[in-house]
């Protein structure tokens, strides 16, 4: 068996098994909480990378998560819908917002798009802050019900929550995998690398960009709905632009050349790292800063490109050449596009 086949038939099932068994291996509510966070942020980071793959850089993705979260909270508390209807509904609402806002925003160039998403996310957050009668305002949205029991699983421990978010993550991974391996994946790459050329061979730029954006927003909304019912409390402070930025760092640190594994690995690494080192809040700030800078300078392809990067270093050492820049998947992304 070649190394590739080995990875496919042995590595992937093992990895899936690891994800399924994770809450049993780390059988402690706090570790399970971390696992749930990793999956939640992975969904957002995957969405960010999907948008990046059509050549746009969003820093307001948490805004769509907020829409999903508050939509779901409102639906269950004010309308009285069950969580199991509220979750897909919240995702659809976020997707509709995504489609409309995408139609408005995606025609901007990269730099302007970044600022537009920032403004949109702030409008969403500030609307929540200044609408206390409906959305709880700065004080937060309390008493969001836990999900009803399903298939005999009551939501009273972390286990069902973990499997629910893992299921959402798996659905998203499946969707992105299918898109990436189909005509869409190639089209997205062509849009990111050379929009005029893509357009000249008949790619409808806006249509594909809106598609990618809507899919990303759909899952951000689903993750938001999950997050609302997992915490049973929401605050606009959970959805600041800084939160979006950190989530996007997960994807970049993991490796933007790895459509699916990158964001998940990055989220896992950056969530676990401060815990491993038992870092205080202050120290984890320093740690994150150092990791961001060191990864960009020494493993520019992201953590998952480390094996390739080591190969590059060894080759350079053998030839006694100057150490080259290495793998840089971002060099095609120009702010002008």
């Amino acid at each position: 068996m070649s190394r590739r086949e080995l990875a496919k038939w042995v590595g992937l099932p093992l990895l899936a098994l690891l994800f399924l068994a994770a809450p049993f291996i780390f059988n402690d509510p706090y570790y399970q909480h971390l696992l749930i966070l990793i999956c939640t942020w992975s969904i957002l980071a995957l969405g960010f990378l999907l948008i990046l793959s059509v050549g746009q850089f969003t820093i307001g993705h948490a805004g769509f998560m907020a829409i999903g979260a508050y939509a779901s909270a409102l639906l269950t508390t004010k309308v009285g819908v069950s969580f199991w209807f509220a979750l897909p509904l919240a995702a659809v609402i976020a997707a509709i917002f995504g489609a409309v806002m995408g139609w408005v925003m995606l025609r901007a160039r990269m730099g302007a798009f970044l600022l537009l998403t920032l403004c949109f996310a702030e409008v969403v957050r500030l609307t929540i802050v200044y609408w206390p009668s409906l959305l709880g305002g700065r004080a937060g949205f309390p008493n969001i019900p836990r999900p009803d029991a399903i298939f005999g699983m009551a939501f009273d421990s972390k286990f069902p929550y973990y499997y629910l978010i893992l299921f959402l993550l798996a659905v998203m991974v499946f969707v992105i995998y299918r898109m990436d391996r189909s005509k869409f994946g190639l089209t997205f790459k062509s849009i990111a690398q050379n929009p005029p050329l893509a357009q000249s061979v008949g790619v409808h730029l806006m249509r594909y960009k809106i598609l990618a954006f809507t899919v990303a927003c759909f899952f951000a909304g689903a993750a938001g709905s999950f997050y609302a019912h997992y915490l049973t409390f929401l605050s606009p402070e959970y959805f600041t632009v800084w939160k979006s930025l950190i989530v996007q760092m997960y994807a970049i640190i993991g490796g933007i050349g790895f459509m699916i594994a990158g964001p998940i690995a990055g989220a896992a690494f950056l969530v676990v790292l401060p815990e491993l080192l038992r870092a205080t809040e202050t120290f984890s700030f320093i740690l994150y800063g150092a990791v961001f800078i060191l990864v960009i300078f020494f493993i520019p392809g992201g953590l998952l490109s480390l094996p390739q990067q080591v190969g590059v270093w060894r080759q350079a050492l053998r030839r006694r050449a100057k150490i080259p820049g290495g793998i840089r998947p971002w060099q095609y992304l120009r702010p002008g596009s």
Binding site: F285, L287, G289, I293, I296
Partner: peptide, 12 residues
């Protein structure tokens, strides 16, 4: 990424 990392690093 580097500018954001620098911001975190300096604040921390």
């Amino acid at each position: 990424v580097v500018a954001l990392g620098l911001a975190f690093f300096l604040a921390g």
